[in-house]
Amino acid sequence: MPFTLAAFIRLAPTSPTLYFNNALGRVYDYSPDYVRIDWQTAPVTHQDLRAVYEHTLHLLKRSGLRRVLSDHRLMPPYTPEDRDWLLREWVPRAIAEAGYSHCAVVQAHEAANRQTTQQLVEEAGKTALVVQCFAALHPALTWLLAQ
């Protein structure tokens, strides 16, 4: 299938809206297609990580969006406690309250974070959430928009 200008425009939205920002991450509204989380290199704190996810959930509910692109390229690993909170509390709430259905994860540059993320993705795969990991942004976005 040839790559058309319309497909390029759809893959590269020009007017995202910054919805939330803290030291650890930024949440963008890419309506009408998806929510994007860009993680930063700041040290992970429970408060900052949970704030990013809670604002993501709020945006999913407010906008009716169901898909998230989570860019982990710069994100440092997070704690087992945060991983458990995400899997046991946040993901089920996001599915139930917002209809969260698909997540494309762009893998981190650091091997330790890639391993942590892969474990999280495997666990999240046991829920109704469909999650895929990618080495680069473009394939992640292509996959996410096809869902």
Rank of each mutant, 00 (worst) to 15 (best):
H102Q: 07
A94G: 09
L141H: 11
Q47V: 14
A23N: 11
A135K: 07
T14G: 14
L144I: 08
L65V: 11
W90S: 06
R36M: 14
S63P: 12
I9G: 05
L120G: 08
H55P: 01
S101M: 09
W90H: 08
V68Y: 01
R67E: 03
Y53A: 04
Y53M: 10
A108Q: 10
V130A: 12
L86D: 11
D29R: 04
L65K: 11
I37E: 03
I37K: 10
C103Q: 15
H102E: 06
A23G: 12
A112L: 12
A146R: 14
L69I: 02
A104K: 06
R26L: 03
T45F: 05
A12L: 04
D82A: 10
P2R: 09
S31F: 05
R10N: 05
P43A: 15
T56E: 00
D33E: 12
W143V: 07
T127C: 00
Y34R: 15
T142S: 11
L49I: 02
E54L: 08
E97A: 07
L141G: 05
A12W: 05
A42S: 12
Y53N: 09
R62M: 02
R67Y: 06
E89A: 05
L141K: 14
V106M: 02
A111Q: 11
V131Y: 02
L49N: 01
T142W: 05
S31I: 03
W143N: 09
P80S: 08
D33M: 03
E54W: 00
Q107G: 03
N21A: 12
L59Y: 00
W85S: 07
V68H: 08
T127I: 03
D48W: 06
Y30M: 14
G125H: 11
L144D: 05
W90I: 00
Q115G: 03
I9C: 11
V52L: 02
A112H: 08
T117L: 15
Y28N: 08
L74T: 07
P80K: 04
R62Y: 01
L120E: 12
Y28G: 03
R67Q: 15
A42R: 04
P76Q: 09
Y28W: 15
E89W: 02
L129F: 13
P139H: 02
H102W: 09
R93C: 09
T127V: 01
L145M: 13
P43I: 02
E54Q: 10
C133M: 08
M1L: 13
E89F: 01
